[in-house]
Design a protein around this nucleic acid. Sequence first.
DNA 1: CTTTTTACTGAATAAATATTCACTTATATT
DNA 2: AATATAAGTGAATATTTATTCAGTAAAAAG
Lengths: 188, 188
Amino acid sequence: MKDDKKYARIFGAVLKLVTKKGLAGMTMGDISKEAGIATGTLYVYFDNKDALINALFAACRENSVMVSFRGYDAQQPFKPGFRSIWMNILRYRLHNFEEFIFQEQCYHSPYITAATREKARQLAEPLYALIARGQKEQLIKNLEPDILVAFIIGAMNELVKQIHYTGSTLTKTRMNTTFDLCWDAIKA
Amino acid sequence: MKDDKKYARIFGAVLKLVTKKGLAGMTMGDISKEAGIATGTLYVYFDNKDALINALFAACRENSVMVSFRGYDAQQPFKPGFRSIWMNILRYRLHNFEEFIFQEQCYHSPYITAATREKARQLAEPLYALIARGQKEQLIKNLEPDILVAFIIGAMNELVKQIHYTGSTLTKTRMNTTFDLCWDAIKA
DNA sequence: CTTTTTACTGAATAAATATTCACTTATATT
DNA sequence: AATATAAGTGAATATTTATTCAGTAAAAAG
């Protein structure tokens, strides 16, 4: 009986290694050692390295989409709704920093196919819908949604890295401040 | 006599390959083939793969710093000065997209040492100084400079990727619009 | 409890990749 | 022009790494 905990251990090992060595310098030997299992066992759970990386990528993607839009209620007014999603995404990336880095690394790697990459882009879909709503309500600037989303997500990503690498804690106050920065940029 | 053009060809090959295959999936064979030279010749120019990647990383770093602050005059008022640097950086990353991606990939790779990484961080130094000046003149928000810089650079990076991957052209108008987005975020 | 099936192991093998080197070609020196 | 020095080559070698597999341990079925 294949062990769900073992999947978790394997994935955990990859995530731990990616921030240290990057995708490039991660061997199957490294992974199995970090996971505390034999190298051969990796092949009980996955056909090959490619499949392993893609499976983890897919898992991360689903996970992040699920968490990001948790508790979102389209009935509430735009700004608080946008704020809660923004906070969700920020928190998610901070608390799952390794997943975040792993996904970034995968994006330009030979492991991930163009199709998988396109699916990943759909993470942004609900965010686009939200932006469209904000524009309809004339609350945010009427620019191409692509530009707005890129701006919002890009700024957040770099913030997450900044916070992580400097080891500073993100207080509630600082999160609010940072959200305001973003809001001032996009508000109409 | 070692050929400067050959350095350029080798570097060019690595940059061309990194957007296709990533750092992970780039062999010395790939590089030499792309550069149109024999594999052995790579070892005339560089001790090994590690040295090659690090040399290119250093070159990209110097190049980008030099270009970003070109034509900056500390005497002119803050906003136009900030604007010209912002535009320089944006243009640089757009026109040297491969360098930009290469540098990002290196950051979490096993090729780049912690020391090299720290040096790279210094790219931002003059930008920090500029931010400090803007704060002293009470033109931009009085937040931690780290947060402001992360926000500005992060938003720009994602914009660059967005523009590149969608193949859209960045008109003067759109560049201005995007700068305004950034300015609205940080202005006091 | 015995049998069967499945997971697990890690050394052995295969495949991929970095690096070397004996040799050729080009460039500089006298 | 003859000689010396350096660059360039790519097949051969060394190294690293993915993958397999024969054997062992554990779990399910009977």
